Amino acid sequence: MKKILKWVGLGVLILGALWAAAFFVKSNGKSAIEYETHNPFISSIEKKTVATGKVIPEDEVEIKPQISGIIDKIYLEEGVTVKAGDLIAVIKVVPNEQALNQANGRVRNAELALNNAKIEYDRNKTLFDKGVISSQDFNNLALTYNQAQQEVKNARADYQIIRRGSAGGSSSANTNIRATVDGTILEIPVEEGDQVIQSNNFNDGTTIASIADLSKMIFEGKVDEGEVGKLEVGMPLEISLGAISDKKFDANLKFIAPKGVEEAGAVQFKIEGDVKVDESVMIRAGYSANASLILEKKDSILVIPEALLQFDKSTNKPYVEIATGEQQFERRDIEIGISDGVNVEIVSGLEKDDKVKQWNKTEPIKKGLEEDEEEDSEETAE
């Protein structure tokens, strides 16, 4: 029994030694890793930033009433194109009882003064015709009579304005709410029956409608303080709208805010740009938009793919490895410039003929190891 166990143990050791030898030979028989190389090339780089915001009309006018009252009738709807002077709505006046009573009393007083002036005028006219009084005295009485007539007209007009909102139902009556500019009605925030307040020195008044020219739009957005210093008025913008994904719009930067606003721990600066509207596309006010700005651009410069760069752990300076022979490389420190996230500018350290090592070779190595492990497991099972 002992002899059998001895021979079994010896057999196991021999098989183990053979397997180890086979694995060692196979491992050393693998081909060496071959690194690809890339040459620097001449290209252009644009460094861009994106500002988020929205597209709004350049000028938006709010129509407010000149008299308080109740909306009696609305004639137009939102989205309708209007001309200056078009009737939008009519207000029904609800007069103040005290003001109405005072206006009525003024009319009665003016009528009494007119009756008295007429009596004096008629009596003195007879005397003037007979030559009893002078021409100057009669002219003074005629002036008083004419002023009394005008006062009655004024008092009655004021009474009608307080009672109805207009003196005679003319097209310029305060109760008629009309468009003051050409454009499109963006919003009518009131309904028939709503009470409105007139615009005055102490109150902005109730907005009955807002009108804007949708052919004149601007982009309004914000940029970070780290990039605002590179912007200049007049720079070109490329506007993309969330609602119109298949079309870009050109614009020019026209305003950069002199003061920033802190948002979520970062200082943001407001910018505006004139958008060149295509007449074939309907742009609605308030569309969300992104503006692409070119912060820096260089043409015909030496570049390499940014993926070829490595950075020294101690100095954080960039370097690459250059081929010196067949799969032989040496380190070379370089100086880089601007980058667009894909390619990076080479300021110094490389020439067009240099062959730069590509680093991303980890996946093929892992794949080879997995295949070897599978083969080894199969051999063990056998």
Results as ranks from 00 to 15, higher is better:
Ala89Ile: 15
Gly79Ala: 05
Asn96Gly: 12
Asn115Met: 00
Glu78Gly: 08
Leu114Gln: 15
Gly105Leu: 07
Val94Tyr: 09
Leu87Glu: 12
Glu111Ser: 08
Glu78His: 03
Ala113Met: 04
Lys83Asn: 06
Ala84Ser: 15
Leu76Ile: 14
Thr81Trp: 11
Lys92Thr: 14
Lys83Gly: 03
Val90Arg: 15
Tyr75Met: 15
Arg108Cys: 00
Val94Asn: 11
Asn115Val: 01
Asp72Cys: 11
Asp86Lys: 11
Ile71Asn: 07
Tyr75Ser: 10
Leu112Asp: 14
Glu77Ser: 14
Leu112His: 14
Glu97Ala: 01
Asp72His: 08
Leu76His: 00
Ala99Thr: 02
Asn96Met: 08
Gln102Met: 05
Tyr75Cys: 13
Leu100Trp: 00
Lys92Asp: 13
Leu87Asn: 13
Asn101Cys: 02
Tyr75Pro: 05
Leu76Asn: 02
Leu87Phe: 12
Arg106Phe: 00
Gly85Trp: 08
Val94Phe: 09
Leu114Tyr: 13
Ala113Ile: 03
Tyr75Asp: 09
Gly85Gln: 06
Leu87Gln: 07
Gln98Arg: 10
Ala110Lys: 02
Ala84Trp: 11
Asn109Gly: 12
Glu111Asp: 10
Glu97Trp: 04
Ala103Tyr: 05
Ala103Thr: 06
Val94Pro: 07
Glu97Ser: 02
Arg106Thr: 03
Asn96Pro: 10
Gln102Arg: 07
Pro95Glu: 10
Val80Ala: 09
